[in-house]
């Protein structure tokens, strides 16, 4: 019994799927953001597992590339969270709601 790349990728896929569902189905902008964070997280997981099992691929000189990418993803996630939450607060100020079904005009 082993745990290999396929297992990790499956978990990553499941997390990504749940993330998509949350991002699409939720009405609250903040919940949508949570879904997006979950998706990014799933991507990180697959990056890391590819890196760990990188013997499977041709590029062999830099086995930590996956880790570096995860660092960038973390950076982007932090920036994105900050801006998105700022946006939702701003929208809330204008419209007193963060319900995405009601933010349907391209203006506020």
């Amino acid at each position: 019994m082993t745990v290999d790349l396929a297992h990790y990728l499956t978990v990553s896929g499941l997390l990504f799927g749940v993330g998509i569902s949350i991002a699409l189905a939720k009405r609250n902008a903040i919940a949508v953001l949570m879904g997006i964070e979950l998706m990014l997280n799933a991507v990180n997981l697959s990056f890391l597992s590819f890196s760990r099992f990188s013997g499977a691929f041709a590029i062999k000189d830099n086995p930590l590339d996956g880790h570096v990418f995860v660092v960038f993803v973390l950076t982007v996630a932090a920036a994105e969270a900050a801006v998105a939450l700022a946006l939702s607060v701003l929208i809330y100020r204008r419209r007193e709601t963060v319900d995405l079904d009601r933010i349907n005009l391209l203006r506020w």
Binding site: L14, F16, G17, I20, S21, A25, K26, R27, Y92
Partner: peptide
């Protein structure tokens, strides 16, 4: 005042379907 309700919106069914599709495909 926006409430802390974590309710589902209009795209519940498509969202679930897409999520399931992605998960199944990747797996």
């Amino acid at each position: 005042l926006a409430g802390r309700n974590n309710g589902n919106g209009l795209y519940l069914v498509p969202g679930l379907a897409l999520g399931a599709a992605v998960a199944v495909t990747v797996a």
